[in-house]
């Protein structure tokens, strides 16, 4: 029995060694393929990429959970053709580092100019707004903050189970802080960060954790993007939640908006496939597929959001900052957050 087992394992090992080498040499084939780096949730992106493969026959190799600095680090050895990002700040930052390439795809006019880079080095396709998801069993809508600034003035210690925020290094939090810096300047923003760090009842890794925790009643409200509220509404249970868009009154700042989009990389190894992908993606059907299960709101206002009750961008009082401004704050917002005492990563 012993020797049988040994030979079984060796056979298996050698077999897989052979096939392993085979798999490796595969990658040097010049079959049409597209390498996608993405910082967006894998669940939202993989259906889109499957659809692309089905429509065009181009093989897609995706790496999920990529941070923009990886692309910077690989600048002399570019690996990816396309970078899909859930933060326009990151895309504009890469653009300023001259890592993205100018494009002119079909149907580009369906996206308003403020939602793309100067020469379409990046293009945003879906949008989200910051706001407060709250548990209707735990807190009255009137007690939920209606302005970002209220988080400085009120510590919400009288609210049962308190409120939740994400760690400082979360992409959504970073762009939230960048937008506040644009609006208020650094001093007031730092005060805001210090307040939420001190007063929040919990700091989570990501927004998905917050929506679940608020839905389950572990916390009364949480600072998230609006689509997490849409997602929680669709849960079979723990879905008695509401959402408040802050700063909506006349003369107030307006909701902080960010987008998700993509850019093509300079020196990309499969240039043709990347162009095909961009043209394909701007077809209206595929713009919707990009939004996909995220339940974000499409930037193209002619499209019906996949989550039909979603508040359209045009119906919101939105902050007057062009999204590309986020790129100017990308690098040092992290430092500001750290200096204000909010850790980028969970301890």
């Amino acid at each position: 029995m012993k020797s049988n087992f040994i030979f079984g394992v060796t056979g298996l090992a050698l077999l897989s060694l052979l096939t392993g080498c085979d798999a490796v040499s595969d990658s040097t084939d010049d079959n049409k393929e597209l390498v996608v780096y993405s910082s967006r949730n894998e669940m939202f992106v993989s259906d889109l990429l499957d659809k692309f493969k089905e429509d065009t026959g181009i093989e897609v190799k995706a790496l999920h959970g990529v941070e923009p600095l990886q692309i910077l680090e690989e600048r002399n050895n570019t690996q990816a053709d396309v970078f899909i990002s859930n933060d326009i700040g990151a895309l504009e930052y890469l653009n300023q580092e001259e890592l993205l390439k100018a494009t002119d795809p079909d149907n580009i006019e369906s996206i308003e100019e403020v939602y793309r880079a100067e020469n379409n080095e990046w293009i945003a396709l879906s949008s989200r707004a910051r706001g407060f998801i709250y548990n209707k069993d735990l807190i009255d809508e009137s007690d939920v903050p209606t302005k970002m600034e209220e988080l400085i003035d009120n510590d919400y210690s009288d609210i049962k189970n308190g409120y939740a925020i994400t760690r400082g290094g979360n992409g959504g939090m970073i762009s939230n802080v960048s937008a506040l810096r644009y609006e208020w300047g650094d001093e007031r923003t730092q005060e805001w960060i210090e307040s939420i760090q001190d007063n929040s009842a919990a700091i989570f890794e990501g927004h998905g954790d917050i929506r679940r925790a608020v839905g389950e009643g572990i916390h009364a409200f949480g600072l998230v993007n609006n689509y997490y509220y849409h997602q929680q509404l669709l849960e079979p249970q723990d879905n008695n939640v509401g959402f408040v868009y802050p700063d909506q009154e006349e003369g107030e700042m307006g909701a902080i908006v960010n987008g998700a989009g993509l850019g093509l990389l300079k020196d990309s190894p499969n240039e043709d496939s990347a162009q095909v992908f961009l043209n394909w993606l701007l077809e209206e059907e595929n713009q919707l597929a990009f939004v996909g299960e995220s339940l974000e709101v499409p930037i193209n206002s002619n499209l019906t959001p996949p989550f039909e009750e979603a508040v359209k961008l045009t119906d919101l009082n939105v902050q007057e900052m062009p999204l590309r401004e986020l790129g100017n704050y990308f690098e040092d917002t992290r430092l500001l957050i750290e200096d204000a005492g909010l850790d980028l990563n969970l301890k």
């Binding site: 394992v9 298996l12 090992a13 050698l14 077999l15 897989s16 060694l17 392993g20 798999a23």
Partner: peptide, 16 residues
């Protein structure tokens, strides 16, 4: 599973 077995097989084979 195939990917896992390939990596594991190659690692085991080369180690030996």
């Amino acid at each position: 599973t195939l990917n896992s077995f390939q990596i594991a097989g190659a690692t085991a084979g080369l180690s030996m």
